[in-house]
């Protein structure tokens, strides 16, 4: 059984909102019709989006950490939004686990939005039907697109590759590995919704070069015939060259 999902790396997301705009662009021009905006160029602009990027701050000044946090439908494996829908408009696809809304069946009762703890469903104020992330179901299977582009618009747009896309039920997929090896976690696990989307936590970043890596005999610098000394010696040599050259 396949469960497509996004894995979002909070360690590299820079909060640029490229995923938000590309999502809006793709999905407002899609087969399902536009995503309503009201007063887009006026006071109090408001509109329907599938994806939002939020920002949080941890710690107290001056020891703070800023976390940019993209959020869209998590395509839960136990989606509480689906069984409550009285019309069957909200459903979860068996073949790939994507949770979708059939806009032709939705009566706009908003009950599904009440039943989603994550605040990712938005009613389209013009069309009066419920909308939410589709994982770009209308492009990931489109054989008219080059294979590399059969991914959600947000994933393709992300300049830092903070968004990974794939099957979280396939243990060897990029997303499963990322979840396993980089501490992937779900949001609000307390409600048993089992979100398919996962987040990768912030990590401490540092310089990963050790002295030994530079100094060893089979190091890449050995190829020019000079066997490098210690890192300190290398730096001293570099500094000498720099000052001598002036």
């Amino acid at each position: 059984m396949t469960q497509l999902a996004l894995v979002i790396d909070l360690n590299v997301c820079v909060g640029c909102h490229a995923c938000v705009t590309s999502c809006k662009e793709w999905n407002t021009s899609g087969v399902a019709g536009f995503l309503t905006d009201e007063n887009p160029y006026d006071a109090d602009p408001t509109g329907t989006f599938f994806n939002r990027v939020q920002t949080y701050e941890a710690g107290a000044y001056p020891d703070t950490e800023t976390v940019h946090f993209p959020k869209s439908c998590l395509h839960c494996e136990e989606p509480p939004c689906v069984p409550v829908c009285p019309t069957g408009a909200s459903y979860k696809r068996k073949e790939d686990g994507i949770v979708l809304v059939d806009y032709d069946r939705c009566i706009g009762c908003k009950y599904c939005a009440w039943a989603c703890p994550y605040g990712v469903r938005e009613i389209d104020e013009r069309q009066q039907v419920m909308k939410k992330c589709t994982l770009c179901v209308d492009r990931i299977y489109d054989t008219a697109l080059p294979e590399a582009q059969r991914k959600p618009a947000c994933v393709l747009a992300c300049p830092t590759s903070a968004r990974l896309f794939g099957d979280v039920h396939d243990a060897d997929s990029e997303v499963s590995q990322a979840i396993r090896e980089r501490g992937g976690y779900p949001l609000m696990p307390e409600w048993g919704t089992q979100p398919a989307n996962h987040y990768l936590p912030r990590r401490r970043t540092g310089c990963g070069v050790s002295e030994e890596e530079v100094a060893r005999r089979d190091g890449p610098l050995a190829s020019d015939g000079r066997v490098p000394g210690t890192l300190a010696a290398l730096i001293a040599e570099a500094e000498a060259t720099a000052s001598g050259g002036r």
Partner: peptide
């Protein structure tokens, strides 16, 4: 639990939209 950021002092600085939403 909503963000998975496990710092005791955590606050939102932006909800990602300015004019209100559903």
């Amino acid at each position: 639990s909503a963000t998975g950021v496990r710092h005791p002092r955590l606050a939102q600085t932006s909800q990602g939209l300015m004019g209100g939403s559903f």
